[in-house]
Amino acid sequence: MNDSTHISTDEPVLRSRHPFVETAEMFFRNHSAVVALVVLVTIVIAAIVGPFFYPTDPFEMVWAPFSPPGAEGFLLGTDYLGRDMLSGLLHGGRVSIAIGLAAALMSVFIGITVGALAGFYRGWIEEVLMRITEFFQVLPTLLFSMVLVALFGASLPMITFAIGIVSWTAVARITRAEFLRIRELEYVTASRSSGATNAKLIFSVILPNALPPIIVQAALMVGSAILFEAGLSFLGLSDPNVASWGQIIGSNRPYILDASYTVTIPGVAIFVTVLAISLVGDGLNDALNPKLRQR
């Protein structure tokens, strides 16, 4: 037998490491992203378990209005109706984050579906889907969401839908771009030539390889959805029976000069949360981008 058909055996046996493990290692090397992740996890845990330990109803008038933070046993003071700010922050955080997540999830779902179909099938399917995407891109997003909420009522599902329906276009475009790139790669041709169905090509060959930029975009979208919800609430288009950070800012807006803390505290909460999400998204971007790897 010919010796040259065999590999020399003196090379080291490599450990089999899952790409996921490598990505995680890369992420944890980025210090600002790790700090942001810690902050974010703290906020999310506070929003989830906080209301159990601090069950005061955020709509209940518990004390005199405009009691400043720290005074009278209320850590963050009370607002213009004498409602507990800390309770509002904890209960409202739950709602804000939940809306952010749900809206981002919805836009990722729509965006991936549209982008994957357009990028995979090309032709008239792509034409139609991308024209629809462009239609949603040129819509004035805030105005369109306001119209939807104003028409169909300010319930949480409706607000989530109104945010999700205007923010999926970026995901669709990214997904399409990745599909256009990856579908021409030889491993996709290899799968196709070994008899893979279109569904298998889309979901188990191309999509997993297209995910990194989509994950980054999705993370950033949670932040922008929280901001969007805050914007709608500030304009008064929020569920009046549910506290959220934006809704607290919106309802205390007239007293911004007399009791600025009522607006500042939920504002800082939004700011910190969205900043943390952005930094985590940025860290994910670096960790998932193979071009920055192993420098």
Binding site: S16, Y187, T189, A190, S191, S193, S194, G195, N209
Partner: peptide, 28 residues
């Protein structure tokens, strides 16, 4: 079956070697 020119783009980076070799059998 095909053997491709570029050994870098012809293997799916997310699959283990055994899975890549098994893929035609799975499709079958």
């Amino acid at each position: 079956q095909f053997i491709f020119q570029d050994p870098y783009s012809s293997l799916n980076p997310r699959l283990r070697a055994e899975h890549i070799v098994r893929e035609p059998l799975d499709s079958q």
